[in-house]
Design a protein around this nucleic acid. Structure first.
Length: 915
RNA sequence: GGACCCGUGGCUCAGCGGUUAGAGCACUCGGUUCACAUCCGAGGGGUCGCUGGUUCGAAUCCAGCCGGGUCCACCA
């Protein structure tokens, strides 16, 4: 960490490269980001600015993990917002505050997504159009070893690509600590985690119903399952009685959208309280086509309103039915295989795929007169989020993680405030999910990912799990057989990312990094992965480290575009941040994404916002150019350090005003970042820089306008204000600010000797002059009204007018020059005989050609407004307000009353004069 | 079925108990090109979704309703 106090450390570091000449010498009239961005970033990185310095006693590091992007992906706007907006903003700010800052980069092997991407690429190389398991480019087509070789080959292609995009955004990541979830040491840590969790009983293997994807040939978790609305045929099927029933007993008819699964039915369920059916519980019916006898059972899971109130129970192919089956000890029949074909258990349907089987079943039911009727139904069907294939629930042996006990301390961590979620309402969402958490199926039937460190003995069926760090087992500890087979599955990709905050720091070894940087500070990410990732990191962190992985979770919303549309490839409305950066610069993009958005809210990205960002960056650049030109034009060196506020009698009122306002901005902007109000920070920054610094102060600082004060104070004030502004703006627009800082700092002495803004000190607020700011504010209002009056009178801006200030105008005397200069007016105090305009208690008389009618109309309008306001205050002060409101508010209102009475009086008098 | 979020100027959004409710973009008018292929100045534009309530005081808190969105859940 560089700071003023550690100059020795800085000079010792002789290997640090000098700032790039391209940046120091860049002089564009309009800021061209592409002229400096790459040079700057490479220099920052090569200088080690992003790597926390040596440990010092009592330090409080700031630690963040990059929400690891998928290695096969490109950055999208959501990443740009999270990484380049909020996260880099926080990292840079904390670094400037002197906290050793570690923002750790990496990428995720992305399991199934990466496999899909690479299979597509390979399919291109193979020149095949086939998809899924039938493609020669799939894992089935290539065989394990070759397939994994291809995966690794593509990883080396994708990794640099995603890292380059992070650099383009300006992310101040510590690249000396970059990790990839499939790095060999990461694989070892995942393996150890699995072994320990197995030993502790959190991992178990069980036959359960799971989501199965026919395309991807793997299971997936509830979180990866989406629901879409679809219209299907609802078939009402009659199940004949298997026993003689009293005359008049109604037929058992069930409604189903999946008639092909009838062959796997093992019961009919009805609601136990349903008067239509409950007398028949325990009776036997015949399953159509397969003609097995099954019982009618009573179960409360049945919806009485749906269909006939009777449900066919197929534990092998429906999640609800599986649970009912468990409750009643029903047999599980599997009639569909992993490729979507009917098994021999399906009897006459065997060998058909699931769609043909459905048609065939309907035909048979019709033949047998068992199909009562069909009607269309719109319902939700589950699909796999990665490929949108309709879910095929199957019963399979999978590895599961027991979640409830892990969730408990993670819930408590948030409830107790040890971990804060921003925005707060997301805590409710978190609790809701965590309190109803279900076990997590962690095995996947793909090949790209972390192997499951489990072997099965072919002799005795034992499960063989090696010791930590032991070699793969070669014989069965139970029966001594050497016929072992490793579990062919891999782990869900989230299994490894859940460990990220501690595994990247060296866990399970007690490394220096782990000791120094765990727990982290903030985890910033999109609310869409609260369950997938944030919750699991919390659980695994607490389990493995006995401490939470971070103390704050900042969740951002979705970035939408063009009329609130979600961006998606299929809609073709995806905005590429890389293209935006190339065209407009990273600063402009970062600013556009962050400004005017509050925590957790979805936002809309538009060209207009980007344009505003670009103009803002350019505005700062040009304020900087102006100040640098002032310094250049000044003969000799500045008399004091650039980064120390000038003082003394040589300062003009305007100098003192902007110095005071700057300290105010320091205070305000610091507060906003501290409170995670990044959107407000961006807006407030723009307001201060553009309106106050550029439009007001710089205008007054122009040499032709300066009539008082010394040149030295003038230039030093400008330099100081610029230095402050650059620091204040650096976290969000790092490129333009450091470019200017490097150029500014080359011009004079400094107290902070940091080589770059990246490692410079965040300003601490200095003294303000509230009274001056208030009087100056009044002067600004007066200036506005004078300009307005001139415009009404249709006067050329160059025409000098006479302005008389009366009423309480005495406070404005020190600003007479400023008012005159910015309004091209001759300002006099007292007197004047034109009709006045009022600002607070100051009368402004602008001597423009008089127009009795216009004046009358204006005065009447002003009087009406003044009367309205006066009435409001009077009513308020006549109410219980005076006894119940806080004294400070009452004092304010009373002052307002006096002011408003004066205003009304003055306007009435003026109107009387007009006759 | 349960839960959550959002409805503020034409657009995108801030503000979330106390001045005449703000910003950017868009719009109208005027000026400038001497830091800014621009920029500056001025202006118009809002019954803060609706209805009640709490309060001295509500865009802000509460309830109900209407509209938009999201998440969770076993609609066969």
């Amino acid at each position: 960490m560089y700071s003023a106090q550690k100059e020795d450390e800085v000079t010792e570091r002789t290997t640090r490269p000098a700032p790039p000449q391209a940046v120091l010498q860049y002089r564009g009239k309009n800021f061209d980001a592409s002229a400096v961005e790459t040079f700057l970033y490479d220099w920052w990185d090569a200088s080690g600015f992003f790597t926390p310095g040596p440990k010092t006693p009592g330090e409080k590091p700031f630690v963040m993990m990059l929400p690891l992007p998928n290695v096969t992906g490109d950055l999208h706007l959501g990443h740009a917002l999270g990484f380049g907006g909020y996260e880099d903003l926080m990292a840079r700010w904390h670094r400037m505050r002197g906290e050793p800052t570690l923002w750790l980069p990496g990428s995720d092997h992305a399991g199934i997504i990466a496999q899909i991407v690479v299979e597509k690429e390979l399919a291109k190389e193979f020149g095949t159009k086939k998809k899924g398991p039938d493609s020669p480019a799939s894992q089935e087509g290539l065989g394990r070893e070759q397939f994994l070789g291809e995966m690794w080959r593509w990883m080396e292609h994708y990794k640099p690509r995603i890292y380059k995009q992070l650099r383009m955004l300006g992310c101040s990541l510590d690249w000396t600590r970059v990790h990839f979830t499939m790095d060999p040491d990461m694989q070892r840590r995942v393996r150890i985690h699995f072994i320990r969790m197995y030993a502790k009983g959190y991992l178990y293997r069980a036959d359960r119903i799971v989501h199965w994807c026919l395309t991807c040939q793997t299971t997936y978790s509830d979180l990866e399952s989406l629901h879409v609305e679809r219209t299907d045929q609802l078939s009402y099927v009659r199940y004949p009685w298997a026993e003689a029933m009293p005359h008049g007993t109604p037929d058992v008819v069930v409604a189903t959208t999946r008639p092909e699964t009838i062959v796997a039915d093992t019961a009919i369920a009805v609601h136990p309280d349903d008067p239509r059916w409950n007398a028949l519980i325990g009776r036997d019916v015949l399953v159509p086509v397969s003609e097995r006898t099954v019982k009618i059972i009573g179960d409360p899971a049945v919806d009485r309103e749906f269909g006939t109130g009777a449900l066919k129970v197929t534990p092998g192919h429906d999640a609800t039915d599986f649970e009912i089956g468990q409750r009643h000890g029903l047999q599980v029949l599997s009639a569909i295989d992993t490729r979507g074909f009917m098994t021999p258990a399906a009897g006459p349907l065997a060998g058909l795929d699931r769609d043909r089987a459905r048609t065939a079943m309907i035909d048979r039911l019709k033949e047998q007169g068992l199909l009562q009727r069909q009607e269309p139904i719109t319902h939700n069907v589950g699909i796999h989020d990665r490929c949108e294939t309709v879910d095929e629930p199957l019963v399979m042996k999978q590895w599961w993680m027991r979640m409830a006990p892990l969730a408990k301390p993670a819930i408590e961590a948030v409830r107790s405030g040890t971990v804060r979620i921003i925005p707060t309402y997301q805590e409710k969402v978190y609790f809701e999910w965590m309190e109803n958490i279900r076990d997590w199926p962690v095995s996947r039937q793909i090949w790209w990912g972390h192997s499951i460190p489990v072997w099965y003995c072919r002799e005795c069926d034992a499960i063989v799990v090696p010791e930590e760090d032991a070699n793969d087992p070669t014989s069965c500890p139970k029966c001594r057989s050497t016929d072992l087979r490793q579990d062919p599955d891999v782990l869900d990709t989230w299994f490894s990312s859940a460990l990220w905050p501690h595994s990247t720091l060296g866990w399970p070894e007690q490394t220096d990094d782990l000791e120094r940087f765990y727990p982290g500070s903030v985890l910033e990410t999109g609310y869409d992965i609260l369950f997938f990732w944030v919750a699991r990191m919390l659980m695994m962190g607490v389990e493995n480290m006995r401490d939470v992985p971070f103390h704050a979770v900042y969740l951002h919303g979705l970035v939408r575009t063009g009329g609130h549309q979600k961006m998606s490839k299929s809609k073709g409305n995806v905005v590429s941040p890389v293209e935006m950066i190339e065209a407009h610069g990273a600063d402009a993009l970062r600013y556009a994404l962050v400004s005017g958005v509050s925590a957790g809210a979805d936002s809309e990205f538009s060209e207009g916002k980007l344009e505003n960002g670009r103009r803002f960056v350019n505005k700062l650049w040009n304020v900087g150019r102006f100040v640098l030109a002032q310094i250049d034009a000044r003969p000799g060196a500045l008399t004091g350090p650039i980064d120390v506020a000038p003082a003394g009698p040589d300062l003009t009122e305007a100098d003192r005003w902007i110095l005071s306002r700057t300290e105010g901005a320091v205070l305000e902007l610091t507060r906003l970042i501290e409170q995670y109000q990044f959107g407000e920070y961006a807006t407030a920054l723009q307001q201060f820089l553009w309106t106050e610094v550029a439009d007001f102060y710089v205008e007054l600082a122009k040499p032709q306008r300066r009539t008082a004060g010394s040149l030295d104070s003038a230039v030093r004030t400008a330099a100081y204000v610029l230095d402050r502004v650059l620091r204040l703006a650096h976290p969000i627009i790092p490129f333009v600010t450091d470019t200017l800082a490097l150029q500014l700092w080359a011009q004079g002495q400094r107290s902070d000797v940091a080589p770059s803004l990246v490692v410079s000190a965040w300003p601490t607020p200095g003294a303000r002059d509230a009274a001056l700011e208030d009087r100056f504010g009044l002067a600004i209002e007066v200036i506005r009204r004078i300009r307005e009056r001139r415009q009404e009178a249709d006067l050329d801006a160059r025409t000098t007018v006479q302005v008389a200030l009366a009423g309480d105008a005495a406070a404005l005397e020190p600003f007479a020059d400023i008012i005159a200069s910015l309004t091209t007016a001759d300002v006099r105090f007292g007197g004047g005989d034109s009709a006045p305009t009022l600002v607070r208690a100051v009368e402004i008389r602008v001597d423009v050609p008089r127009d009795a009618v216009g004046d009358r109309a204006r005065l009447e309008k002003e009087l009406a407004e003044a009367l309205g306001l006066l009435q409001k205050t009077r009513t308020l002060l006549a109410s219980d307000f005076t006894t119940k409101a806080p004294p400070a508010v009452i004092v304010k209102e009373r002052a307002k009353l006096a002011e408003r009475e004066a205003a009304v009086g003055s306007l009435k008098a003026e109107l009387a004069k007009l006759g």
